[in-house]
Design a protein around this nucleic acid. Structure first.
Length: 638
RNA sequence: GCCCCCGUAGCCUAGCUGGUUAGGGCGUCAGCCUUGUAAGCUGAAGACCCCGGGUUCGAAUCCCGGCGGGGGCUCCA
């Protein structure tokens, strides 16, 4: 059966059957207002039978529309006989009998006007019938004719979306490169020879054409290292996190949160779902045609948040704010934010439908304050990427700045100051007029092994939402004012940070270095390998000394050869591996296989501990969340 | 969402011009080995060949639909 239109809303539903013949016989009245009829067997041949359910809100206009459609169809089939058969069982939202009969009679009238030989079975009767349907593919069809109201609502929604899209399409961008000295040159005139990654970013952003047939390296790594994996039992882009991945993710979350609080933000927590029809939110959503996850609850339609904006703005709306409180910094680690990205654009940890986004807003009194604040946040972002994730400017990530022409002309010095801070050329996208709610936005873009760019840290100056959400502060003259709002994700999505670190590690491997995660994020920081089970007690002693210092340590107590255990520790990217046997028990020094240095270093236990503490002192710590003994660990992947 | 490619034990994969019990490696389990810095030996278990339909005497293999993955387009608040 071919279904032409499906709608959950009110509509006239018609089952249309091209039949060899139909016979029916009225059996008994079902309602008092049933039509008069002859109680005998009626038979028709070579005709189109229309089983019709008239739903609430249907009217004579719809009847005409339906007959027009059906009539066109009948010409194709070369049939000119029709039977209209009132049939309640296609709907659970039926119109009242009087209204339904009116519509049915209208159908009959329009069909007659079209010159169709039309019959109608009596309304309000329980009838028995049998019929023979022709065998061709178009013989059976369901038609759903929507009421004008339903159609209008739909069209209105579609129009809104298409207008937003059109406006965005029309939006013309001009691309430049700004050098650290403030010189801005059109992108085609820039010499990229010393800035290969910038060239990749520019190409990715402007041309956006690439042809690779390859699974992104980080996808294999995230599974091999038992960090995260696809969860086919969920919606695509919603991941499962294995213990090691959950540990890494949790540490990153703690770190970004700690750094953002240190910068001066107040951590809050807001709901993950919001009323679709909340007046303020509706207006905001209208600007963003992309799709949300929608949740139904009782009579409400809710959408899952795609950032912390809603919750924080609604909170700010109800907050008493003085100019003295500004800049007011609010932070939330959204676990999760949801974006129902189109299925074709989901890629491993790079782009998900459910992700953890640190989101920090700053309410600012005026542009001067906003610019000053943005500089501070820029520093915060650099610190997180460089010190936290171990990424390097120019090597791993590039700066892109986007702004309106008007903003640039009035704030050249500020833009130049950002580029100067970066110390590398930055990609510029300049718009003639403002389309988005912001006048300036910058991002750090990570460039991966397939030459794709992904935004990590980002910040923007929002000039619209203060007013839209009715967020006000009281200025020196006791007047209510709308603040400017900075939107910043200091690190970008946490999942994407892991993607970036894995892609970087892969690149290092290609360059002949040992791939690894930063020490503070390595699930196992030190592995102790007893050469045989005779030395297990000594290994345990070493491990417990290390563990006491808040260092994640485990013991490979499996009955395997030492070579094999070393090999497996290496494939797990463990930063320090210690083999203990007879010599170690006697000498009290340890041969530490240092992954980063690529050599075995003779060290005292205290020296090793000190080195690790020195490298991780400003980072959060969590104990190992896996059994300390490898013999006790299940295998999650592979 | 559209177009293209892919889907075989937990993992990697052979077979895929249709034809006996779907072959191998890693891992798992059992046993042996008690080890000096990247893979010790032997054996066993483990496969609705992604799911559903079709073609056929016969389908992992061919066709259609779905689900999942990848790439491209598009998009990215």
């Amino acid at each position: 059966m071919e279904i032409q239109v499906i709608s959950e809303r009110e509509a006239m539903r018609v089952l249309q059957l091209h039949s060899d013949w139909i016979e029916y016989e009225p059996v008994k009245k079902e309602i008092a207002t049933a039509e008069k009829c002859e109680r005998k067997l009626h038979r028709f041949e070579e005709l189109l039978v229309l089983f019709v359910s008239v739903e609430k809100g249907d009217n004579e206009d719809l009847a005409e529309k339906l007959i027009n459609e059906v009539s066109d169809f009948m010409k194709k089939l070369k049939v000119n006989k029709m039977l209209i058969y009132p049939y309640a069982h296609l709907s659970n939202n039926l119109a009242k009998p009087t209204a339904a009969l009116k519509v049915l009679k209208a159908m009959e009238k329009y069909a007659k006007q079209k010159g169709i030989e039309v019959y109608r079975t009596p309304f309000g009767w329980c009838k028995k019938f049998s019929l023979s349907i022709k065998g061709h593919p178009l013989a059976e069809q369901l038609r759903v004719i929507e009421s004008k109201k339903t159609r209008d609502e739909k069209e209105k929604a579609e129009r809104k979306i298409s207008e937003a899209l059109k406006a965005e399409e029309k939006l013309e961008s001009f691309w430049y490169i700004i050098k650290p000295d403030g010189k801005m040159v059109p992108v085609e005139k820039f010499d990229f020879s010393k800035h290969k990654n910038m060239e990749k970013l520019a190409r990715y952003e402007i041309a956006k054409s690439r042809a690779v047939q390859q699974i992104p390296p980080h996808v294999k790594l995230m599974r091999k290292l038992e960090i995260a994996d696809y969860e086919p039992g969920s919606d695509p882009g919603n991941f499962r996190w294995y213990p090691k991945g959950a540990l890494i993710k949790s540490l990153l979350e703690q770190y970004v949160t700690a750094k953002t609080i240190e910068y001066g933000a107040m951590e809050v927590e807001t709901p993950v779902m919001y009323d679709f029809h909340h007046p303020t939110l509706t207006k905001y959503l209208d600007r963003f045609p992309a799709r949300q996850y929608v949740v139904r609850s009782e009579d409400k339609e809710l959408f899952l948040r795609f950032s912390a904006c809603f919750g924080q703005f609604l909170m700010a709306h109800d907050t008493q704010i003085s100019y003295r409180h500004l800049p007011l910094r609010i932070y939330e680690l959204t676990r999760y934010s949801f974006r129902r990205e189109k299925s074709g654009e989901l890629v491993g940890l790079r782009r998900l439908r459910a992700f953890t986004m640190p989101d920090c807003h700053a309410l600012c009194a005026n542009l001067e304050q906003a610019k000053e604040e943005m500089i501070r946040r820029f520093d915060l972002c650099v610190r997180i990427l460089e010190e936290g994730l171990g990424l390097t400017k120019g090597e791993d990530y590039e700066l892109a700045i986007r702004f309106t022409k008007d903003f640039y002309e009035k704030n050249r010095d500020f833009v130049n100051a950002l580029v100067k801070k970066m110390g590398k050329p930055a990609l510029v996208e300049m718009w003639e007029q403002r389309f988005f709610y912001f006048i300036l936005k910058w991002e750090f873009n990570f460039i991966d092994n397939l030459d794709k760019a992904s935004a990590l840290s980002t910040d923007q100056i929002d000039v619209e939402n203060g007013e839209r959400y009715g967020i006000t502060y009281v200025d020196e003259k006791a007047e209510k004012k709308y603040p400017l709002i900075l939107h910043c994700s200091p690190s970008g999505a946490i999942e994407r940070c892991i993607y970036a670190m894995l892609e970087k590690a892969y690149r290092q491997q290609k360059e002949g270095k040992s791939p690894m995660l930063p020490l503070w994020l390595s699930p196992t920081q030190v592995r102790v390998i007893p050469i045989s089970d005779n030395f297990l007690p000594y290994a345990e002693k070493i491990a417990s000394e290390i563990e006491k210092k808040d260092i994640r340590v485990d013991i490979d107590d499996r009955m395997l050869t030492m070579q094999k255990k070393v090999r497996e520790a290496e494939t797990e990217w463990i930063p320090y591996i210690i083999v203990v046997g007879k010599k170690e028990v006697e000498s009290k020094t340890l041969p530490v296989r240092d992954r980063e240095a690529g050599e075995i270093r003779k060290m005292k236990l205290a020296e090793l501990v000190e080195e690790i503490k020195k490298k991780t002192w400003d980072k959060p710590f969590k104990p190992l969340t896996l059994p300390k003994y490898l013999s006790q660990r299940p295998q999650f992947y592979g």
